[in-house]
Design a protein around this nucleic acid. Structure first.
Lengths: 258, 258
DNA sequence: CGCGCATTTTGGTAATACCATCAGCCGGCG
DNA sequence: CGCCGGCTGATGGTATTACCAAAATGCGCG
């Protein structure tokens, strides 16, 4: 230590400032390396990473460190870890589950309310209607009709019905042929609203009407009638909206100081 | 694209065999427990968790397991881990950064294109205009005017100008007084579009016009003129839209950096 | 044909050593 | 006498090694 400070004071000794790296954590470096490989496409979805023991040899670190890296990769939704003989870390295909989970966390951990998120969802699903009308294909329409049919057939089963309703809305978003929009709507309907059972309480009452509105909406889509489709969707979502708004006004404190 | 829709139907079908597996991992159980404590507010942002050694005693597990759990929590953005004497795991304040990072990852790791995300953003920002008109306050208007002024003052500095433009849009979203909407728009403008320098190329050309449109928009807001505001915003975002659509056809491999 | 064992691979534990950081103390120097 | 500066110890995360348990797959033997 004394030698080092003497070395620095000596002029010309600064040239060999070798990198004392340790840029944070070893496991973090591994994570970044694997993430980069995935981004570059050198690891494709479905590929299997080497086993933990092989990896710890390749990276020159211990097995626990590799496992920590795999954990954060798994938490990030980049890999899926299976145990057993043919197990290991498999690169997952990126899904909406992850961003959906993030949104769900956000609504649980922040001053976000379910009503706020619901309103955002309404805005979004209403806004995409023109795009849907513009781009909907015959195949999309066929799928939507099929979903309506299934929903009517299952109108007695609450669980299936609400699930089908969510799938209907996601399928509508899919008719924009924009993966980002589809993912976002999927996220909204997935872990976010599904986790709060609140909307399932009112579902039975409105299930019949909702199914009918779904069908009307598809018909308007088939006519390429933007205004009718928008109106139907607005009313369809508006019922939930009013519920949201009434509970909003009954909410005493809102954090507007943020 | 086909891979994605296949994935959506896929994870929908296997959701029920997904859950029981999750209960198997010890570190996962710890994660859930801590997450629950945070959700319930029994652990508030800024609080410090016990040390690893204490935790492994409380949970009755080994230190490695606790460390894995902490890694997952850290990767999920729920805690921040500091080393050193006063170190430990601190509960972080929830921010939009996280969901923004998730979106950024999604766009980098999935078949999502920047154009798709951009279109989603446009739909969303356009859809909230009625809400903004309905709920905008004098304070909101004052802030927006101030931002316009700053933007005009900094019209020579490209970097500052684009940054201010993003802040303007986020502030507009804030006028909905809906935290979810504000977060979403913030996420769109933050790490997502900011990371791709592509939109900054055209910014200088349209900077002047954009600033003027911002001002016109605020004026329409002040008059509570929904149609004018919507029209202005539609044109304002529409310019980017056309650019997006033309580049959509020429979609190729994304030169990912960062 | 089916049951079960062997193998592969992750899951978890324990002990140990090593950095990083900070608080407080203690001694030298102005 | 008072202040500055480094030393030291306590706290707490980081990483390694070695070892065992559980799970899933697949092959072989009965």
């Amino acid at each position: 230590m004394a030698a080092m400070s003497a070395d620095i004071t000596g002029d010309g000794a600064r040239r060999d400032l070798f990198s004392p790296v340790h840029l944070g954590r070893v496991s973090g470096a591994i994570v970044e390396q694997v993430r980069l490989l995935i981004r570059q496409g050198r690891l494709k979805p479905g590929d299997r990473l080497p086993s933990e023991r092989d990896l710890c040899e390749s990276f020159g670190v211990s097995r626990v460190t590799v496992r920590e890296a795999l954990r954060v990769l798994e938490a990030g939704g980049l890999v899926e870890i299976r145990v057993g003989a043919r197990g290991g870390a498999f690169v997952t295909v990126p899904s909406t589950e992850r961003v959906g989970a993030s949104l769900a966390d956000l609504v649980g951990l922040s001053p976000l309310t379910v009503d706020d998120v619901n309103e955002a969802r309404r805005v979004f699903e209403l806004g995409i209607v023109p795009l849907v009308v513009e781009r909907v294909t015959d195949e999309d329409l066929a799928d939507l009709y099929r979903l309506c049919q299934q929903q009517r057939a299952a109108r007695d089963d609450e669980d299936t019905s609400t699930g089908l309703s969510a799938r209907f809305h996601v399928r509508v978003a899919g008719a924009t042929h924009n993966a980002a929009i589809e993912m976002l709507v999927h996220s909204f309907h997935g872990p976010l609203l599904g986790s709060t059972r609140e909307d399932q309480e009112v579902a039975p009452r409105t299930a019949g009407r909702g199914t009918r509105e779904h069908l009307d909406f598809v018909k308007a889509l088939e006519r390429r009638d933007v205004e009718a489709a928008t109106g139907i969707m607005s009313r369809h979502l508006g019922r939930g909206a009013r519920r949201g708004r009434s509970s909003r006004s009954s909410r005493a404190v809102r954090p507007d100081t943020t």
